[in-house]
Amino acid sequence: MRYLLLTLFCLLTGAAHAAPAKAYMSIIIDDLGQSIERDQRTLALPGPVTMAVMPDTPHASDFARQAHEAGKTVILHMPMDPATGPYAWHPGLPTEELARRLDAALLKVPFAAGVNNHMGSRMTAEPTAMAWLMAELQRRDLFFVDSRTSAATVAAAKAQEDCLAHVSRDVFLDDVRTSEAITAQLREGVELARRQGSAVLIGHPYAQTLEVLEREMPRLKSQGIELIELRQMIAVRSNLAMPAHGKQGRYSNR
C-alpha cells in the first residue's frame, strides 16, 4: 500500500519534534481548471508543484490529465461550505449525498492522488462529516491536505485519528494580492521551514503569485530549501501536527 509506512509513523504522533536537519518545502496551487492560460503558466513552474484542480471548472478533466502526464501531483480541490455549486459539501447533507458529490468530483478530476478543501470554513469544522471523509479517503488510498481555512477545522485531527496520510497548510501566499506581500509570505515560508524542518505553502494562479514563484523558486536551493513533492512531505511529517497546529505532534482541535 502506498502509505503503509505511515501506519507505523502514527505510533509516534505523541513524540516531540526533533531539531530539523534539513528544510523542506511543498507548494500547492489551488483553483486550477478555470483558465487555460493560467493553468499552463502554473504547469510550467519549476519543480514539484502540486496542482489542485476544482471539479466545477471548464478545463478540470483535460488539465488534470495534462498535469499528470507532465509528472505533476494532481489533487481534487473539493468545494466545501461556504462554497456553492453541484459538488459542494454543506453541513446537514446526508452521508449518501456527500458520497455522491465526492464520487462526481473525483470523476471530473482524473488521476487525483489526494484531496484538499476549497473554502470549507464551516464544513471542515464538522467532526462527523470529516471523520467520514477521512475513512473514505483511506478506503480509496488517497491523502488529504487540510487547507486550514478556519481555526476551527477538525479535518487534520480526524485524518490523524484515522492514520490517514495527510499534511496541513502552514502559509497562504496570496491573501494580499501584491508582489511585495506574496514575496514576504514566501519568505515567511522559508523561515518557517528552517525553524521546524518543513513548510507547506498554498497559493493561487494569480499573475502576481506566478510572477513571484517564477522568479523566486529557482533561488530556494541557495537559501537552504529543498522543494519536495507532496507525497514526500507527507512522509517527512509522518502525520504529525506542526507546532502552530497542536502540541507534541497532536492536533489541538479534536
Rank of each mutant, 00 (worst) to 15 (best):
L107S: 06
K108H: 05
K108E: 09
A113I: 12
A113F: 09
G114F: 10
V115T: 04
N117G: 06
N117W: 11
N117P: 06
M119D: 02
G120K: 08
S121W: 02
S121E: 05
R122D: 08
M123K: 05
T124C: 01
A125S: 06
E126K: 03
P127A: 09
A129F: 03
A129V: 07
A129R: 04
A131W: 02
W132D: 10
A135M: 08
E136Y: 00
L137C: 04
R140C: 11
D141G: 00
F143N: 09
V145Y: 01
V145W: 01
S147C: 13
R148Y: 14
A151D: 14
A151I: 15
A152D: 15
A152K: 15
T153N: 03
A155Y: 08
A156I: 05
A157L: 02
A157E: 01
K158N: 05
D162C: 04
D162P: 00
C163V: 07
L164C: 01
H166I: 02
H166C: 07
V167N: 10
S168N: 14
R169M: 11
R169L: 07
D170R: 11
V171R: 13
D174K: 05
D174A: 02
D175H: 13
V176G: 02
S179I: 14
I182V: 14
T183E: 10
L186V: 06
G189P: 05
E191L: 14
E191H: 14
L192G: 13
A193S: 14
R194F: 06
R194E: 14
R194K: 15
R195G: 12
R195D: 15
Q196C: 07
S198Q: 13
